[in-house]
Simulated scan of single mutants.
Amino acid sequence: MSTYKLVCPHCHGRMRIRTSEGKHIFLRIAYLQCQNEACGWTVRAEFEMTHEMSPSGMANPAIKLPVADVAQRRAAMATDTDQPDLLDQLEVEATSI
């Protein structure tokens, strides 16, 4: 299981979620802060569920999202890629400075 790392676009430091609030079952508003004290950038972010990639094994009939098209599902399933993860690369570069 992987965790998503939030990286500050200014100093490439790690960011943390200070607080968040649910606006809708598919939308969460979060307030982020850079943990680099010299930077201290804060930002509002929105995390939204937009498409269903595969059906739930315990489907709730009240939950309705559009099914992702074939191209989106193939892209999500692609495991053999030479492209590095941008956020991981930024974090590596930040630690090597």
Rank of each mutant, 00 (worst) to 15 (best):
G57Q: 13
H10L: 13
W41P: 01
A94W: 06
R28F: 04
I29M: 04
M58W: 12
F47S: 14
G40Q: 02
D69G: 10
N60T: 11
R18L: 15
R14D: 11
L90A: 02
T3L: 11
T79M: 09
K5E: 11
E48P: 03
C11E: 06
A94Y: 05
I17K: 15
P61A: 07
L86P: 07
A45H: 03
R44G: 00
F26Y: 14
Q83N: 08
D80Y: 09
P84W: 03
P66S: 00
L6Q: 07
G13H: 04
P84N: 02
E48M: 12
P66E: 03
L87V: 08
H24S: 14
P61S: 08
A78M: 10
A75T: 05
P61F: 05
Y31N: 14
C11I: 09
C34H: 01
K64E: 11
V43Y: 00
A76T: 04
V43F: 00
K64T: 12
C39S: 08
E21H: 13
K23I: 12
A62C: 01
G13F: 05
M53Q: 14
Y4R: 13
Y4G: 10
G57F: 13
E93H: 08
M58A: 12
D88V: 09
L27N: 07
R28A: 09
Q72G: 02
S54T: 06
A71N: 15
S20N: 15
P9S: 07
G57Y: 12
A75P: 02
S56P: 01
L6C: 05
R18C: 12
D85L: 05
D82W: 05
L65G: 02
L32R: 07
F26N: 14
C34T: 02
M53S: 13
P66D: 00
L32K: 07
D88W: 07
Q33M: 11
T50F: 07
W41M: 06
C34M: 01
A71T: 15
L86G: 05
D80Q: 12
H10M: 11
R74D: 14
V43R: 01
V43D: 02
S54L: 03
E46G: 08
P55A: 10
D82C: 04
T3P: 06
D69S: 05
I17D: 14
H51T: 09
V70M: 10
D88C: 04
V92H: 00
D69C: 11
L32G: 00
I25W: 10
L87A: 11
L32M: 09
D85G: 01
L87E: 10
R74F: 13
A59Y: 10
